[in-house]
């Protein structure tokens, strides 16, 4: 009871000190952080990158999650500068489909080729996020938010991908890849229709 009352008191106590709330930093960061998380197509593709990297083993397990944000940045810059990128939404849907298929097939390809595949899709994701930046409450923290969320989704994918060391885990990941591919196909159909 006391705990409840204490919590209530803390919640109802006045918060007058709003120091360091410099031009909506918090709101910009939160909206940037949530941007990749609110789009299921983004989530599926990011997690798939992490899983695929883990399936490919070292050094792909970290090279792919490093490649993705770096190339994504170029896409983001194009978006910030307002440069058109035709078919960006199709590219995002396609990323979930292709990466899902690669995970489901546990397809091993050469690292440079894997980097190219991931890089092409990273451009599409980056442009979609970057185009939103100028309208954000605080563009700078919005950018940092979406980079962080993307990285954390990759980390989640890598963590799941560590199941690849177990027989049942391999099956589970391949099934997960199938689900991701189906999700990608659904979004692709929405875009093409």
């Amino acid at each position: 009871m006391l705990r409840f009352l204490l919590s209530l008191a803390l919640l109802s106590s006045p918060l007058l000190a709003q120091a360091h709330e410099v031009t909506d930093m918090g709101r910009g960061f939160v909206s940037g952080f949530m941007h990749p998380l609110f789009g299921l197509d983004h989530v599926l593709a990011m997690v798939a990158v992490g899983i695929w990297g883990a399936q490919l083993g070292r050094p792909a397990i970290w090279v792919l999650p490093v490649t993705f944000p770096l190339i994504m940045t170029f896409g983001g810059v194009l978006g910030v500068l307002g440069m058109p990128f035709p078919g960006v939404e199709v590219g995002i849907a396609l990323s979930a489909l292709v990466l899902g298929v690669l995970v489901a097939m546990r397809r091993r390809i050469a690292l440079p080729a894997a980097m190219v595949v991931v890089g092409i899709f990273a451009l599409c994701h980056g442009h979609a996020h970057g185009a939103e930046i100028p309208d954000a409450a605080n563009p700078a923290t919005f950018a940092l938010g979406f980079v962080l969320a993307t990285g954390l989704l990759h980390t989640a994918g890598i963590s799941l991908g560590l199941l690849d060391g177990f027989r049942r885990g391999i099956q589970l990941l391949r099934a997960g890849g199938g689900v991701i591919a189906v999700g990608g196909l659904y979004y692709l159909m929405l875009q093409v229709r």
Binding site: P69, V77, L148
Partner: peptide
């Protein structure tokens, strides 16, 4: 080095985007 390099790639991405915003 692996987590360091991954974190650094996020920092590089963030800094590039902030610079682009400054230029835009």
């Amino acid at each position: 080095d692996i987590p360091s390099r991954v974190l650094a790639s996020w920092l590089l991405a963030g800094a590039t985007l902030l610079l682009a915003l400054r230029v835009a």
